[in-house]
Design a protein around this nucleic acid. Structure first.
Lengths: 254, 254
DNA sequence: CATTCTCCCGTACGGGGTACGGCGAAAGCG
DNA sequence: CGCTTTCGCCGTACCCCGTACGGGAGAATG
């Protein structure tokens, strides 16, 4: 399946849903099951966490709640909006410790790792094409907090925004590879090492080491060093250090 | 829809498909329509380019070729394998100019931009979760070429691999945002600016600028500077410079 | 008790991937 | 030239999806 999309529906309704304004259904009035946006969202996150975004269907959520499928549409306009709220809810989980006296480098490191961890807890977040940012309360609070690490360094507002975007983009890209590696092992029931051992002979016949000397050597070295084709966590930390060094050069020049 | 997955099927069959080994069907034998893996792949890429990965269905590909749906399965084991071949075919498009006397920094810049352009030509590539690399001839040639930019700098093989991964990851992450921004404008039929103008009032009621001063200020500044919420190309180039600076620090230290 | 409001949800439609099995034409052979 | 075998082709069917629509049921109100 291709990536889910967010938004799309009536923006007013979406914002009302995200901020839980409007005295929606069953606000103390009536309703036999204690259904509601929160329970639906929680169920959605549970399913997506456990079985991936592909397993998240309206029918599945409804079954999980012991409710008819179409009942969900009383509280949520559609699947896209449900995913929006799931996203904002997940953003709300990120820890946001007081910076204290730590420097920007430590703060950015913490932010990157927090996002890395978030994507590991909720891999399905990586399969949602947001396009337009989800403007929920938690998303905005998170953005505000993360910007805080870069204020007072002499950077312009535009530079601050681009720099944060760079760090978050790296966390996302690295997490994407890590998560995909885990998922492919689950789906195929095969360790990376096992898989390579099974394919190496055939691949050896196909690719000419003479023609691609660098690829074969580096690929082998990387695989050797990490016990598999790639060590995602090492790649994350390595990349983060390079990026922080690059930011440091920019800051020094201001 | 959630991300498509690659692989999954019989790996021997997949490799045979990617490398076009095996005297598959219609190799001069017979077949009324001149169907074949190549025509199927080309059709798949055309559809995905034009209408996105969501529009890519086996029925759609077959219709495009004037052929029954199930005929495709004579040449391709399934949709996942078709996408694998589509990916490797796209990798084959990347330009790989002789490095000449240019330095590593220029080479890496060229590689990053080439990948950025590739994702813009084929946005659907960003929606495929590869997990395990697609081991086709073009993918390997591309990997070998790109590694070439980082040899002879005194880095270890593991560092070379991680560094390339960092640069490619940035190109991918930046392209993802750029492409999603374009797509959301197409889907919603609304310019980013138009969209913000429509939501600003309502959002202004919801979020307290006192509580999130940094977010509102920086968000406004970034939007002002680029004429929209974000300028993806600027973000790409800005991030690339930071990353190259960070790599430079590593190289200098060797 | 009657009315009304509103949550709830059964049914149905158009789309998806692909397993299965049959059809018909070309290739190989005598 | 005719028979047999092979194999590309594909119609049908099954189970999944999101959700439009309209009816049913139960509680709050009068």
């Amino acid at each position: 399946m291709a990536t889910e999309h967010s938004g799309g529906g009536d923006p007013v309704r979406s914002l009302a849903l995200l901020w839980r304004t409007q005295d929606g259904p069953s606000s103390g009035r009536r309703g036999r099951s204690d259904l509601g946006v929160d329970r639906i969202v929680r169920a959605g996150i549970e399913i997506a966490d456990a079985e991936g975004l592909a397993a998240l269907s309206m029918r599945r959520v409804a079954d999980h709640l012991g409710v008819g499928t179409m009942s969900l549409y009383t509280y949520v306009p559609g699947k896209a909006e449900l995913i929006d709220v799931m996203l904002d809810t997940a953003y709300g989980e990120t820890a946001r410790p007081e910076p204290g006296a730590t420097g920007w480098r430590e703060q950015l490191t913490g932010i990157a790792r927090e996002n890395w961890a978030l994507y590991h807890r909720h891999p399905w977040m990586l399969q949602v094409a947001t396009g337009r940012a989800v403007l929920g309360p938690n998303a905005i609070a998170k953005y505000d907090y993360e910007l805080g690490a870069l204020t007072g360094l002499g950077l312009t507002d535009v530079e601050v925004d681009a720099t944060l975007s760079l760090v978050l983009g790296h966390a996302e890209a690295a997490a994407r590879r890590a998560v995909e590696a885990v998922q492919v092992e689950q789906r195929s029931g095969m360790t990376d090492e096992h898989w390579w051992r099974a394919h190496a002979p055939l691949l050896g016949q196909l690719v000419d080491p003479q023609r691609y000397p660098t690829a074969t050597r580096v690929g082998a070295a990387a695989g050797q060093a990490h016990g598999s084709a790639h060590d995602p966590e090492h790649a994350f930390e390595f990349g983060l250090q390079r990026i922080l060094d690059g930011i440091e050069a920019l800051v020094a020049q201001r």
